[in-house]
Write a protein that binds this DNA or RNA. Structure first.
Lengths: 206, 206
DNA sequence: CGCTAACCTAGAACAAGTTTCAGGATTGAC
DNA sequence: GTCAATCCTGAAACTTGTTCTAGGTTAGCG
């Protein structure tokens, strides 16, 4: 597992020219804009293509499916969140509290744009094997964010990594129940706090 | 929340005639059969309709979308699992161990039919608000199974219910990572065991 | 029995994701 | 500057979930 704090997201396939990079940005921007408006269903490939001034075929050359596109959109947004967190790290006492606070911040960001959250999270959990590399990148980014929040002094133990994985599981699934209206904001908060207890349980000093 | 141990799954809308009940069964059977063969994508509405000798329109009258159909299929399968578990309850010492064992049994069942698992779990997590009641039924069934495994002497505390919710989150999300090939069987096992520790942490006697 | 409402069937039609193709534009190598 | 390879465009076609329509069937009821 990579542990750099600010990894370059794309594993560097053939480098893109400037115009290509610009196209890619336009597409991601259009995707996020449509998602913000109406969630997963509102991100329609034809419309993304038109909005970003790109032919449909080209859109599919850049992102081989709607799911790929939305997962890439999520990468993008996560990256931004990661940078924000670097500027204002959580200041609570105790690793568990810091992780909980970090996730709650992310959760509040999602509450501000529930439709965008819907599109990204649905894509993430619906992704099949063909999107594994991209989903994995998102997962690594999330892991990095959580580990950062823990502020470990040394490398995480396998136990701690397990705890982090479980926290990620809970995070994703709790988001889904919230997005589909089956859990309240308060309940998500409780779930996050509950699972964060695992951090103390697995603390090697405990 | 309902806590009956063997609830009638359908909240009893207008009762179905015998032929209608038979149609419903045929549909669910066809759905499971196709799912077993090729997972989510292999469950095609036209084919389900043909296989179960029902017109496409009728299929949609019984299950208003593919997601509804697959979630109902999951209800069906879970119900069977619940009955099996009643016959051979887990015998481990300690609530956490029993819950872990129960989930591992379910996991092994899924390993036997990974395609079916794929179809059901993908549907479950992709479901939007329009499927909330049905998804909730599945969720309640799962909760019941876990609480049964815990073998509590008295009613669960709110804390314990939180722990159970987190376990469910982990369960679903871990399944997804396994189904999409991003986690090994061993890793899912570890995640389940890790999250089950929360049961001990939240035990009021602890 | 005969009526009526609800239900079922076959099939067309529609929507959105994905694929394909012919031709024009860009780019990198020489 | 020219050429070949690659990329991009516009548009049509294909796939599968979903909706709609017109007509036949069934179930309950007087």
């Amino acid at each position: 597992m990579r542990t750099d704090s600010t990894p370059s997201v794309q594993p560097a396939s053939p480098p893109l020219t400037e115009r290509q990079e610009a196209r890619r940005r336009r597409i991601l921007h259009a995707s996020a804009r449509l998602a913000r408006r109406g969630g997963f269903d509102a991100v329609q490939m034809r419309e993304v293509a038109e909005t970003s001034n790109v032919a449909l075929g080209t859109l599919y050359r850049y992102f081989p499916s709607k799911i790929h596109l939305l997962v890439a959109t999520m990468q993008d947004q996560l990256q931004q969140m990661h940078e924000t967190l670097h500027k204002r790290p959580p200041s609570e006492e105790g690793a568990a509290a810091r992780v909980a606070e970090t996730l709650m911040r992310a959760f509040r960001a999602m509450q501000r744009e529930p439709h965008l959250a819907d599109a990204m999270v649905r894509a993430l959990t619906f992704a099949d094997r063909s999107v594994s590399p991209e989903v994995d990148t998102v997962s690594r980014l999330t892991t990095t964010i959580i580990l950062d929040a823990m502020g470990l002094e040394s490398a995480p133990t396998p136990e701690q990594l397990s705890a982090v994985r479980v926290i990620e599981h809970t995070w994703h699934s709790a988001l889904i129940t919230w997005l589909s209206g089956r859990a309240s904001i308060a309940q998500v908060k409780i779930d996050i706090e509950t699972v964060c207890r695992l951090i103390d349980v697995t603390d090697p000093r405990g």
